[in-house]
Computed example of a mutant assay.
Amino acid sequence: MQIPSQDFLTQVISTLKDYSPCDVADALLKFGLPDGGFFPNLNQVSSNDSCSVGVAYTVTYAPMDDPRPELKQVSYIDQAPPGSMIVIGLTRSAQLPGAPYVKITNALYGGLMSTRAKYLEAQGTVVFGRVRDVSEHRALNYNVWSYGTGICAPKGAVKLVAVNEPVEVLVEDYYNKNEEGSSRKAYKTIYPGDIIIGDENGIARVPVGRDVYDDEWLSKIINYIPKRVEADELVAKDIMDGKKAKESQKIRRANL
């Protein structure tokens, strides 16, 4: 497997900025990801009316009774790379399979963090937990996604235990069933360096440099997206001209 070069990743990100997570998901579905890279249950709490795309910079919090030591001397927000998407999650023990999806009611992220993130030219922040200071994120025109909101700071409830390590997210896996036919619970992982793209529709992860996801696979993704978007634009025109949707989709997507 060939891990994509930095120059190639820059090209991929530049291409994806012109599209949406929905466009990306269509391509991911086409080339082997049955969930389209989607992470469910997140809401966009602040928007600058544009799509955010960047390389995942990951942060993990744990409950105070977690055996891992707290990274007391680390300020993750001051290390956020330019162009990154900040991804914040909780350890497995603090997650729930259903709403509100986490046991911690304290906010993991607030307005001062977005102020610093924007100064450092981060592209957005994804929080698999609660956030606070919604009006501050909005005033900054900085994109933020979360499971919900809160009013309390994280101090005393959680501690920082990892930066730039994989973030695991508990979801319902509808693509794998147990013996009774019900969907299983599964952990989906965001790795540091993955590409994250998000807008009002939600968040998608484009896996980078793992398993079969090499530069050849990424090339297929970015080559397919504009063709699919063009085809769907033609479908929309056909429908407005009175043609049947199913027939038009079949014809316009025939060569994709």
Rank of each mutant, 00 (worst) to 15 (best):
M1F: 15
D7T: 13
D7G: 10
I13C: 02
S14K: 11
D18R: 08
S20Y: 00
D26I: 06
L29W: 11
F31V: 05
L33H: 07
D35Q: 09
G36Y: 03
P40Y: 01
L42E: 02
N43R: 14
N43W: 10
Q44Y: 05
S46I: 05
S46Y: 00
D49I: 11
S50V: 13
V55G: 10
Y61E: 05
P63S: 07
P69K: 07
P69C: 06
P69V: 05
L71W: 03
I77H: 04
D78A: 15
V87R: 01
G89Q: 02
G89S: 00
T91N: 01
L108C: 04
Y109H: 04
Y109D: 04
S114P: 02
K118C: 03
Y119C: 10
L120H: 07
V127N: 03
F128Y: 08
E136C: 14
L140V: 00
Y147Q: 07
G148R: 02
C152D: 14
K159I: 06
K159W: 01
V161F: 05
A162Q: 10
V169G: 00
V171C: 08
N178P: 00
E179A: 15
S183G: 07
R184M: 15
K185E: 12
K185M: 12
A186P: 04
A186W: 12
I190A: 01
Y191V: 15
I195C: 01
E200N: 09
R205N: 09
V208G: 02
R210W: 12
D214V: 04
D214Y: 08
D214H: 08
D215S: 15
D215T: 14
E216M: 10
L218C: 06
I221F: 02
I225L: 06
I225H: 01
E230A: 13
E233V: 09
V235G: 02
V235W: 03
D238C: 10
D241M: 12
E247F: 08
E247S: 13
N255Y: 15
